[in-house]
Design a protein around this nucleic acid. Structure first.
Lengths: 344, 344
DNA sequence: GGGATTTACAAAACCAGTTTAATATGGAAT
DNA sequence: ATTCCATATTAAACTGGTTTTGTAAATCCC
């Protein structure tokens, strides 16, 4: 592979001239420019990515960091990624998926700086060592979701207003007369579950009510979403037969809820109302009856996160900015007023 | 940020000693090793990724190249990615998503070598400039799917046996007595559509039959999958009311087919049999009746592709290897024998 | 028309690592 | 005691770019 020196020699100019042709930083006469480009083309030369990055200290690569224990994107992550990707592509950044297990990364021989200008963190936890580590070494990042509380004021992030979202969903059901609402929440260690719980509680307390906290269930990430939704409803309905509504963490959970309802002979929405938080549904028309849901706009979140990060990268005077995307409740046909008359 | 020289000075050793501590290439006495590591830790030092890569000529990054016109992964791609990711993670490679539009990449000031050791190409086209370009500059790659014909013998790839898969699906329907089968094929310019067509035709011709070629429809990638499936069935059933079976490119297409069937008052499988090619279904239980499908194992394909690429990267004596993953027809409840008696 | 500024290019220093060649030390083998 | 060899360490060269500094020629300004 030809290098800059080879091209310089071939074109009969100095290395710095070739450099300036390719970086465009200093002016070069058109005649020389053409001669250099011609030589470069003949020698099939392109500037070495690393040599350049090493001295400019800029990689034009953004890292995407996910929970290091799982190495698998789900539907939920996919929407973020697509948003991030769109922004990266339009601003000329590449996206590096960071999945190396920390066991690997901590081996002395593997220990290196990360080849990125900044990173986007997915699925923040209430105590998150990925964040700790990056704060400590002063690396730039943006979080999708709410950061661990101790960094909430210090880090840029994009998030839905999850308290609000949960409150809206809960209030809708309360207004329909439901009182025993099963809340299938996100995984407990994820920050989002705290906000959802808060919104849920808030909605009750604003009406002078208080929910049975046993009806707040946290997802177990070892079980598949649909399966967890199914099992939870089957189990809880047995213990609390007066449940008349379910709020599900995702539409995939809701899928399991639907299946359980069918199996229990419960009609949706007559016997059971269902709402789900969701990103961009894959199969929007696949629920019968269509699923009432809180639209979370994952793709927008991803795009805004990338935008925010890149803004930080190019800014000289850093400032911590946080973006909130409002979600909205989309009414379809899976919720109805509570049945009057005798309980089942 | 501290560099190797700083650490060397702090630990009272030479730069090359520090280098060897971190690379593990030459032996260092335990006492010195500890001293260096301590200094490094105190100075919060880690070796610079680029400086190292520049001289070792190894990045331990794999590129994932998708169709540059679309900057969006679909469900179908997600399964590949997860497979690739799994392999990368276990072998210590990072994954770089390459989405920069060629308009960007071809600007002189943006022209650089790619910071990867090798690449995985998604959705190969019958004429594919991404492949051309990489072959010309001698870059290592592995393709998921069948390469353009002219490179079929020259490039490593992993693929399903798509001729076989299509033949199996078609034969199953022909054996059930169906003769007018609507084939909703992949996008025409994708190589996979050619193989699917071949298998479809082959199945007919083996029985001395020949299909109405008007019943082979190619997907339009401008329309969403489910929507395309829906529209196509609505349109074709009007023109060819004697269609009794549909083979769909993906399960998402099948979703649209189901919807169309419902709208037309056709019962599945009594009036219409449906088969889909699919990767890892997100909602396996979501079809009523459950969808008979050709399981394509996207995740395995992705993993094998990464394995194949990494194998190439570390091998001294290059050889072109191609991997075929057999798919299998999973019978569920969406196909049945053709109805006897009067046509509708 | 003479000084100031701009333009076009080159030489050398620099970025942060690795690799090579050279040297010192200690132990085993002859 | 001398040779041989393995181990441990270093100085210097090298990777392939960019940036700084320097300088000659061209253009600008009054």
């Amino acid at each position: 592979m030809a290098n800059m020196g080879d091209v310089a020699k071939d074109a009969g100019v100095s290395k710095s001239t070739v450099s300036n042709v390719f970086s465009g930083k200093r002016s070069i006469s058109e005649a020389v420019r053409q001669r250099v480009l011609e030589s470069a083309n003949r020698l099939n030369y392109r500037p070495n990515y690393f040599a350049r990055s090493m001295v400019t200290k800029e990689t034009r690569i953004i890292g995407l960091v996910m929970d290091s224990r799982k190495v698998k994107f789900n539907q939920y992550n996919l929407s973020f990624i697509n948003g991030v990707l769109r922004e990266c592509s339009s601003q000329g950044y590449r996206l590096l998926i960071d999945t190396l297990p920390s066991s690997f990364r901590n081996k002395v021989t593997q220990m290196t700086s990360e080849p990125v200008d900044g990173e986007i963190i997915l699925d923040p936890l209430t105590v998150d060592e990925r964040v700790e580590e990056r704060v400590k070494s002063g690396r730039l990042m943006t979080i999708i979701g709410k950061p661990p509380r101790k960094y909430e004021a210090a880090l840029p992030y994009v998030n839905n207003d999850n308290v609000q979202a949960a409150e809206t969903a809960t209030s809708y059901l309360l207004e329909l007369g439901h009182r025993n609402i099963l809340m299938i929440n996100a995984v407990k260690k994820h920050t989002v579950s705290q906000d959802r719980k808060a919104g849920f509680m808030l909605s009750y307390s604003k009406r002078g009510l208080s929910p049975d906290e046993e009806l707040i269930v946290y997802r177990d990430d070892a079980v598949s979403s649909a399966e967890f939704g199914y099992r939870t409803v089957m189990k809880w309905m047995e213990k609390f037969p007066d449940i008349t509504a379910v709020i599900a963490d995702t539409d995939q959970i809701a899928l399991g809820v639907y299946r359980a309802a069918m199996e229990l002979g419960l009609s949706i929405p007559d016997d059971l109302s269902v709402i789900a938080f969701n990103n961009d549904t894959v199969y929007p028309g696949e629920f019968h009856p269509p699923l009432t849901s809180v639209e979370l706009n994952g793709e927008i979140l991803g795009q805004e996160a990338a935008k925010l990060l890149i803004e930080q990268l190019v800014a000289k005077n850093k400032l911590v900015k946080q973006v909130t995307i409002q979600s909205r409740l989309v009414l379809r046909a899976s919720c109805g007023p509570i049945k009057q008359g005798f309980p089942v």
